[in-house]
Structure formats: C-alpha cells, structure tokens
Design a protein around this nucleic acid. Sequence first.
DNA 1: AAATGATTCAACCGCCATGTT
DNA 2: CAACATGGCGGTTGAATCATT
Length: 402
Amino acid sequence: MARSGGGMEGSGGLKKGPWTQAEDKLLRDHVRRHGEGNWNAVRRETRLQRCGKSCRLRWANHLRPNLRKCPFSPEEERQILLLHGLIGNKWARISKHLSGRTDNEIKNYWNTRFKRRQRAGLPPYPPDVERQIKLLRAQNVNPFADADADAAHANASAGLPAPPLLYDVGNPFALLSSIPSLSQTASHSHSPLINQNYPLLNQMQVFHHLGGSQQPSFHQDGSAAAFGDIVSSRLPPLPTARTQAELHSNQFDTSISGGLVDQSMLIGDEHLLRPNPSMVKVSSMPALSYREPDGSRMLPAHGAGSDGDVSSLGQCPPGQDLHRGATWDFTFAAVKPAKRRTASEVGFSDMFAVAPPGDWFGGGSTAPSPGPSSAVTDEEFNLEMQQFMSMLPLSDEHGWNA
DNA sequence: AAATGATTCAACCGCCATGTT
DNA sequence: CAACATGGCGGTTGAATCATT
C-alpha cells in the first residue's frame, strides 16, 4: 500500500512506497539467480532503487514461493492464539510455526482482531484457547524460552514476579480443572513438555475436582504459600487484580465488565466454566456473530494492487480459503461486525465467557513477557501443539459464534 | 451521491543482534 | 576490540477501501 504516494524517493535516491510489477520482476529475477540474502547487492546488481531492507521485506512478505495469501484457517488462528499466549508478540517466531505465513501477516491479523475484541471489551483469547494457554504455561511449555529463560531467571532473582498465568480472578481453578482430558494429560502424560517443576497447577485441578473452593494465596517473594496441604514454592505468583493503568497496551481493560461476564454467556460452555456469583451483566456489547460476505476477503481489500501488487492469490487449495462462517471464525471474527451496528442492535449473548486476563504479561513491562521456560525443542513443541490441537474441536461446539 | 468514519494491510522506521573486516 | 555492514524483528503509519449515515 502506498504510504508515500508511490514513486517517492527517499534519502539517497531510494524509492519508497508500493512496489511495481517491474520492480517485483527485477527482485524476483535477482533472487532466482543469486538466492536470498545479500539484499544490499540487489540494488547494486539491478536497477532497483530500493534499499536492501525493503527488498528483503518485499521478498519475504510477497514474492517468495509458498506464501499463502488466503485467510487464516481455524487451525492457524488457533495456533496464532496459542503461540501468542505463550510467547507474546514474537511474530517471527510464531510465523515459523505457520507454513507460508509471514510475521507481518500474523502481526496484522493479531492487531486487527485484538483491537476489535478490545473494543468489544473481550479478552484476547476464547475460553478454550485460554485454557490451553494456561495449561501449556502451567506445564512450563515454552519452546522459545532459551533466551527468555535468562530474563525470567533474572526477574526471579530480582524479586520481580514471574510472568503470570492467565486465570480467573474469581475462580482461578474453574477453567483449569474443567478439562479432564487435559488434567489427565498434565498428570499422566509422559510428554517431554510436562514439566514437573510445576506440579501445583496439576494438583489444583485435582483439588478442584474434589470440590475444593478455597483459593490459594501466592506470595510475590516466592515463599511457600499454603494451599490446603499443597505448598507452592516454585510456582510463579499468580497476579492480583491490577489497575487499568498497569495494564499492558495489549491488554484488555476488563473493568468494563468487572472482568467478568454474564453467567448466561456460559451457555454452551457450562461444563467447562463454572458459574461465578461475582459475574456482572454487561448492558451493552456488540453482537459477535459474523459471517463474511461471500468470500469477499478472497481478494485483498485493496492491493491486488493498483500499483502492480503481485500478491499471490489462490495459492491455497480450494476450500481452504473460503472459510468464513460460524465454524470457521471461531476466534476473532466473532467480534467482527457483520455490518456496523447501531447500539440497539448490539447484544451480548455471544460474548465469550472467559476469565479476565488480569495481569496479562507481567506488570510494568511494555513488552509481553514469555511464560515459564523450559528446554523444550521446537520439534517437541510442534508435536505437543498438534496433540493439543487435535484435542480441540474446530466446530463451534461451544456456540461462540451463535 | 456525497461525506464521514472505520478497517485493512503493505511498507517504513528504529533498534538490536550478528557477522565481517 | 572497535567499527562497520547486514539482516531480522517488532512497532507504527497512512493510503486505499469499505460501511454507514
């Protein structure tokens, strides 16, 4: 998209703005001959008046083979959510797990949908995704934690709270405990991702299944916190309610609804979410059901390019791209306005029932913090992720899009 | 039909890490 | 070891487009 009117020259006579077909051809030919990399040589060896960075970006985001330009599939959306929940705004890392997707694409996707949900006063993750995130984090699953582990350790050493788990302020165990299969996984799996350093959450699940309602206390100093006969000495402290000012920019201000949602919204998910007496009713919330108008997004809204955009369309197999609909957009599109609505049309019956993110990624930091770390490899993580994915229905089982 | 506001996403920018000299 | 070059990443911007009034 043009951001400078096209053809504008920056410093050094370098061109900015949208790429033309001719430029694309030059770049493509160059890469074909010389391979990727050495981007600054492109300008030297071709007539392209683009800086190396611009070339790299153009190639990576639009020209390289195997790019998939179709809308995200439900699995991809779920992966994005899960990965984002685990590692935060690490778009490049996330994109590595989504074949044919660029970090920019994922970033745009997230930002767009996130803002939409934010406006609607919704948490970033649907309930079951949030549960997955909780579980993975509780199990210390962070395949990218090599570098992050140091930071986390440094934080711990400095007495700073570890990245919090997502949880329900009112009932931190309601979500975690409600998935027997997951509890089973946590308790009995021999997966390499099951980290025994975090047994407490698993026990919490058991505890809750046994009818426990007492909530544990966690101490920021990491000292043991009594929880029945369960003592936590290693679990990162769960967050306390924070003020809006402390929320990360990416966090939702759940104060709109007190961080909780109407109990009626739990319909369809009631076997997973326990009624919470502290839930409040939200009087005005956009209706969330949405159906894309007849695959209109098959084509870019703009850009198949007035200026020779060569966005590779149709690279997704038939049926993979026309995915709009109730069972497809289970995540963000549920908040997407079918049409912009008047306040009177707005409803809340399809709001996600989910715990407030509360302290989403650690207070004070402008960047989301990764979750607890482990030495799990990407391969192991992928395997584990696939297993989790397979456990989750792609259908609209819980009626989020109803 | 025009005006206005909202949304999308390609492209840019600045910073940082790594490699090379 | 320092200086420089290069590549990568995440955040942000803004024109094009869409939807609504």
